[in-house]
Design a binder for these strands. Structure first.
Lengths: 102, 102
DNA sequence: TTTTCATATGAAATATATTTCATATGTCTT
DNA sequence: AAGACATATGAAATATATTTCATATGAAAA
């Protein structure tokens, strides 16, 4: 059964805006491999803790990531169902239309 | 045959950044229906000409739109192959994960 | 070849987003 | 319940993107 409900332009804008940030893309790239706590991400990506925290809060508001508490750590994990196909679309797009840009 | 070439995080970032703008989303929404010149878009969307021109230049650099000259008008048209599936992903995402937000 | 209409461009002004840092909150351990 | 560790939050400082406006370029018509 196909879903035909369309978002408003504003919703599209908010969605893209939330992703248009290098820190968030790094987070997504890392969580694609495995879930991680803020501290682990901070160490791995060499990004300051509160910076990650701000970014993760935004991504969570959009349900691009989710979190579960585990002791004093909060483990973030990627909601892959939207973002992975989306990144694949970009991969293909760039192959087809922007082959010279890295 | 499946395509497995992956973009750099920076490429993803640039792609999303280019879309994270209400003017550009309006343009895309309009061109989804039909190609149009800058003047037509300006009239339809009530957006000032040079503003559109700046936005269209960016979208064109990313091959999200293309243009053909027709007399003194430049007709922009949407490269639907990437953006339409991407908007569909967002539609679905919001249905599933953010049903209460408009 | 001058005028007119259509679009593009550059740069300053403005708006918006990100970063930083001090501190608050929350969860365990003792 | 006090201390230690992990994460979140608010707000000012900073960085980045968008808008605006004056003007340039380009194409067609006169």
């Amino acid at each position: 059964m196909k879903n035909n409900v369309k978002c408003s332009p504003r919703s599209y804008h908010l969605f893209f805006r939330n992703l248009a940030n290098p820190v968030k893309i790094s987070i997504i790239s890392s969580l694609k491999e495995a879930p991680a706590s803020v501290g682990e991400l901070s160490k791995k990506l060499k990004i300051e803790q509160s910076k990650l925290s701000h970014a993760l809060t935004n991504l969570k508001n959009c349900s691009i990531v989710n979190a579960k508490q585990k002791g004093k750590h909060r483990i973030y994990f990627l909601n892959k169902s939207t973002i992975l196909p989306m990144l694949n679309l970009i991969d293909k797009h760039r192959c087809k239309f922007c082959p010279n840009k890295k």
